[in-house]
Simulated assay, not measured.
Amino acid sequence: MNRAALILPVLVFIIAGALSSVFIVDEKEKALVLQFGQIKAVREEPGLYFKIPMVQEVVRYDDRILGLDVEPLEVTPLDDRRLVVDAFARFRITDVQRFRQAVGASGLTLAENRIDTILRAQTREVLGGVTSSEILSADRAALAARIRDASRNEASTLGVEVIDVRLKRTDLPVQNLDATFARMRAEREREAADEVARGKEAAQRLRAQADRTKVELVSDAQRQSEIIRGEADARRNAVFAEAYGADPEFFDFYRSLAAYRASLLGGNSTMVMAPDSEFFNYLKSDQRR
């Protein structure tokens, strides 16, 4: 009975020790076997592994692609137009042994801080060498690739590979927005004023041209009407002259009748003249006979 009581704890201890000496590395991670803080083994392939219980420990690191949002930072391009840039990066731990040596027990937190510092420095350096127009254009993808390549060299000392860098947002600083909007508004108002001035100038030019054309047309019409009226008067006088030459007495009689008709129209038919006036020659009895 006493022997069984002694054997049972020993078996439990042996089983616990055996279980604590076994560890599993899956496909999403890499592991380091540490002994008193020193690296004894690197386990990068998925599988079942062993370690010395109570002496060695296992530290696991994520083998997947990780994301990091870089804190927004201000950059000053070549044209001195300050911009606020918001970027993010994708990275992966490629060398867990170097990663452990670089960041120690702080692990991923310290690594992200150092990667953030690297990305901020490279972003300022790359974007500071171009104009703001290039940053805001379609060339920003090429600029992000330059930031990635430059950051990749420095991050490799941490055992990390920077896979991708993207510029999410590029804006003006808040304190510059009002001034920029005011300047843009002033430029648009100036352009609008220029357009209005050009429109008024064009309208004045067209109006003057129309007035000139009207004067020319009216003058030409009056000239033609005077010519036609003069020709008609000449033709009328020629007809009268021809009629008078053919029968002067009949022409005088016709003219007198026309004068009688014109003078006796209307409600007032009273005329005052001498009885022997030639106006009544064709109304006298001897003339009728």
Rank of each mutant, 00 (worst) to 15 (best):
L8H: 08
L8Q: 06
V12L: 09
V12A: 03
I14P: 05
I14H: 05
G17M: 07
A18T: 10
L19D: 02
S20L: 10
S20V: 00
S21M: 06
S21G: 15
V22D: 04
V22P: 06
V22K: 10
F23D: 03
V25W: 02
E27G: 08
E27A: 13
E27D: 11
K28G: 05
K28V: 01
K28F: 11
E29C: 01
K30H: 15
A31P: 13
A31T: 10
L32V: 03
V33L: 15
F36I: 02
G37W: 06
Q38N: 09
Q38F: 08
Q38C: 01
I39S: 12
K40C: 01
V42S: 06
R43D: 07
E44M: 14
P46Y: 07
P46L: 07
L48Q: 01
Y49W: 08
F50R: 06
F50S: 07
F50W: 09
M54Y: 15
M54V: 14
Q56M: 03
Q56L: 08
E57S: 10
E57C: 02
V59N: 05
V59I: 10
Y61D: 00
Y61C: 02
D62R: 11
D63S: 12
D63R: 11
R64T: 15
I65W: 00
I65P: 01
I65A: 06
L66Y: 03
G67R: 14
G67A: 13
L68C: 00
D69V: 10
V70G: 00
V70L: 02
E71R: 09
P72N: 00
P72E: 01
L73R: 00
E74F: 04
E74W: 02
E74I: 05
T76E: 01
D79I: 10
D79V: 06
D79C: 15
D80I: 09
D80C: 04
V85S: 02
V85F: 00
D86S: 15
D86I: 07
D86W: 05
F88G: 11
F88A: 11
F88W: 13
A89E: 03
A89V: 03
F91P: 08
R92L: 13
I93N: 09
T94V: 13
T94I: 15
Q97Y: 02
F99I: 14
R100E: 05
Q101G: 02
Q101E: 11
A102F: 03
V103I: 12
A105M: 08
G107P: 12
L108H: 12
T109R: 10
D116N: 08
D116Y: 05
T117H: 01
T117S: 08
R120I: 05
T123S: 03
T123A: 13
R124G: 15
E125P: 05
V126G: 14
L127T: 04
L127G: 04
L127I: 06
L127H: 08
G128M: 11
G128T: 13
V130A: 06
E134F: 14
E134V: 12
I135S: 13
I135G: 13
I135V: 14
L136D: 05
S137E: 06
A138P: 09
A138H: 08
D139N: 15
R140E: 09
R140S: 14
R140F: 06
A141I: 07
A142Y: 11
A144D: 13
A144M: 05
A145G: 09
A145D: 07
